[in-house]
Simulated assay, not measured.
Amino acid sequence: MDQREEQEFAEYFAARREAVRRMAYMMCGDWHRADDLAQTAFIALHRHWRKVRDKGALDAYVRRTLTRAVIDESRRPWRRERSTEVLPDAPEVSGEVANAVATRQTLLAGLRKVPPKQRAVLVLRFLEGLDVAGVAEVMKCSEGTVKSQCARGLTALREALGDELGDLRSAL
Rank of each mutant, 00 (worst) to 15 (best):
Ala57Met: 14
Arg75Val: 05
Tyr61Phe: 07
Arg68Pro: 05
Leu127Gly: 10
Gly153Ser: 04
Arg158Leu: 06
Ala109Trp: 06
Ser94Pro: 05
Tyr12Gly: 02
Ala136Pro: 03
Arg79Thr: 08
Leu66Val: 03
Ala156Glu: 14
Thr103Tyr: 01
Leu165His: 05
Leu87Ala: 08
Ala38Glu: 10
Thr67Ser: 09
Trp78Ala: 15
Met139Gln: 12
Leu157Cys: 04
Val20Lys: 01
Val62Phe: 10
Val121Gln: 07
Arg75Pro: 00
Thr40Pro: 04
Glu11Phe: 02
Gly129Met: 14
Tyr25Asn: 00
Arg119Leu: 09
Pro77Thr: 14
Arg104Ala: 02
Asp59Gly: 00
Leu172Arg: 07
Arg50Ser: 10
Gln149Met: 07
Val93Glu: 15
Gly144Thr: 09
Glu96Trp: 15
Thr103Cys: 08
Phe9Trp: 00
Leu168Thr: 00
Leu58His: 01
Gly166Ala: 04
Glu159Tyr: 01
Pro116Gln: 14
Ser148Gln: 12
Gly56His: 04
Thr67Lys: 12
Pro77Leu: 15
Gly110Ser: 02
Gly166Arg: 09
Tyr25Ala: 01
Gln118Asp: 09
Arg64Ile: 12
Gln7Thr: 04
Ile71Lys: 14
Asp2Arg: 06
Ala100Ser: 09
Ala19Gln: 00
Gln7Pro: 03
Val62Lys: 04
Arg64Cys: 11
Gln118Trp: 12
Asp2Leu: 05
Arg64Ser: 10
Arg22Ile: 09
Arg169Ser: 04
Glu81Asp: 13
Ile43Thr: 11
Met139His: 13
Val135Gln: 10
Ala60His: 13
Arg112Asp: 08
Leu45Cys: 01
Thr106Ala: 12
Leu111Asn: 07
Gly56Met: 03
Leu165Phe: 06
Thr103Val: 12
Arg112Lys: 04
Ser142Tyr: 08
Arg112Gly: 02
Arg53Asn: 10
Phe42Glu: 06
Val101Asn: 00
Ile71Val: 14
Pro116Gly: 08
Val132Tyr: 09
Asp54Pro: 00
Arg119Ser: 06
Glu137Ile: 10
Thr155Gln: 08
Ala100Thr: 12
Val132Lys: 08
Arg112Pro: 02
Arg17Gln: 08
